[in-house]
Design a protein around this nucleic acid. Structure first.
Lengths: 159, 159
DNA sequence: TGGGTATTCATGGGGTAACATGGGAATGCT
DNA sequence: AGCATTCCCATGTTACCCCATGAATACCCA
């Protein structure tokens, strides 16, 4: 779990139950990579463009914090980022069985009631309501059919 | 203390009560990172652009102090920083239950009466009145929808 | 290859510790 | 003496931890 070890990307999509306490199980496929890094919690914040919750680890949040370094401390740009991301973020520790508790506001933003869809997004993962997720994916697929999809790998792109 | 040396970014937003003595509880999510660094107090000063109180630790105040190094001692820039930040700052120690007492002037600047909103901002956190905070956030969200928001992570950006 | 067993995993419920908050007593300052 | 500050204890609430159960998967051995 040293610095040399590259964190595994978050992949897969899972549907989980949300119980009366707002608890939901973080799928092992997403949780284990974090546990291997020594993380006991995930940092979550509402996506301000989409009705879903964005999740990542502390390294990524701290990297965002450091990215504001060197910028004008009192600029509007820095203020926008910090206001919309850091203040809206919450550290959600999981219990011994791997569940986190979604704050009420998060459930409202994502429209989550008693079921949630958790999707790996590489460096982050997202929590959706089934309905919003389906709508989002259909729009994505349509867009990919219309416009295509391209990707460029740099460096030694993995064997 | 694996990442203990690295300061965790301040995140989350919490609404707290301000009692008749002007005391308010610094939420554990913001206080604990400071306590882990050995801090028993927070440094606070009025934000000169916004009606809120800016809070940070000594490391950040000292960094700002060092940033004036090499600048003309009698320049307007140095004079502004000195006048608007250092002279207005106060160290606010928390009691054994984690509460600080807001000076009267700070409460006036932020328009705080019996309730306050405390928001993490990465390297700092802010104390608002609920009303001003709501107005500020609505403006931010509108701005983000209109103009978008971009941020580039360099280096080990979340790896 | 098939059946049986052992782990891992998702889910439900209840006890307990941490936390935010209120009030009162002791201390210091004017 | 009067006021302000701070320390200390009490309380209700919330969130966290640990128990147990069922299902699905992976593993093992014949």
């Amino acid at each position: 779990m040293a610095e040399g070890t590259k964190a595994r990307a978050f992949i897969s999509t899972t549907t989980v139950k949300v119980d009366a306490k707002g608890r939901l199980s973080v799928p092992a496929a997403l949780r284990n990579p974090l546990i291997e890094k020594g993380m006991q919690e995930v940092v979550a914040f509402p996506n301000f463009k989409l009705p879903c919750i964005e999740c990542c680890d502390w390294d990524r949040i701290n990297a965002m914090s450091e990215a504001t370094e060197g910028l004008d401390l009192f600029s509007d740009e820095v203020d926008d980022i910090t206001s919309l991301i850091f203040s809206q973020s919450q550290a959600l520790p999981w219990d011994t069985t791997g569940r986190i508790t979604l704050p009420q506001g998060f459930m409202g933003h994502a429209g989550i009631a008693d079921t949630a869809v958790i999707t790996g997004m590489g460096r982050t993962f997202r929590i959706w309501s089934p309905k919003e997720y389906q709508a989002h994916m259909e729009a994505k697929m349509q867009r990919a059919r219309d416009k295509g999809l391209s990707m460029v790998l740099r460096g030694q792109a993995g064997s």
